[in-house]
Amino acid sequence: MTSPPPKPGRAAALLPALLSLAAFVALWEALAALLAEPGTLPGPLRVLDVLGDEAASGRLAHATGVTLLRVVAAFVVAMAIGVALGLLLGRSGATDRWLNPWLVILVNLPALVVTVLCYIWIGLNELAAITAVVLNKVPLVTVMVREGARALRPDLDDMAQAFRMRPADRLRHVILPQLAPYIAGAARAGLSLIWKSW
């Protein structure tokens, strides 16, 4: 019998990550010094300098706040639509056969194309930005939740039907707990996608 390797402590587990980050910053600084063209590749110290100025003027906090609001809005809307659509497509074969081709197109549409189109159609405003991100994220959430909806246990469906559970109770106590891992996965993947969109 082999015993698992001893688990490193919390601090020891963090050490490789910190060293790796330090190495990244050092590499960045070295490349910037080698190139010696701050307009093309500013070094980390120079970036930190600008960041400090922006923070002092209050512009950084404002911009971060606006971005966060967009992220939250786009995340909430995209998750709500994606979960509802995924559940519908996973449960109804007929709907899936009709809408799956749309989904294939949307999943493969470059995010940049959607974003540019939204700005052209809606204008250079918040609504366009949020709509673009929602459109980019919904297909991903839909596909992941559809996977979960297809894996829902038929025996529990029978049980809920036999005891005539109300639809809202079924959703909350029978269906959503089974979908939870898929929704969490979609949320994680979706959040990083949204965050990188701005």
Binding site: D158, M159, A162, F163, H173
Partner: peptide
């Protein structure tokens, strides 16, 4: 009408 299934068919998360 109530049903007792072949398996217990319980909600594992409740």
């Amino acid at each position: 009408t109530s049903v007792v299934f072949q398996e217990p068919t319980l909600l594992a998360w409740r």
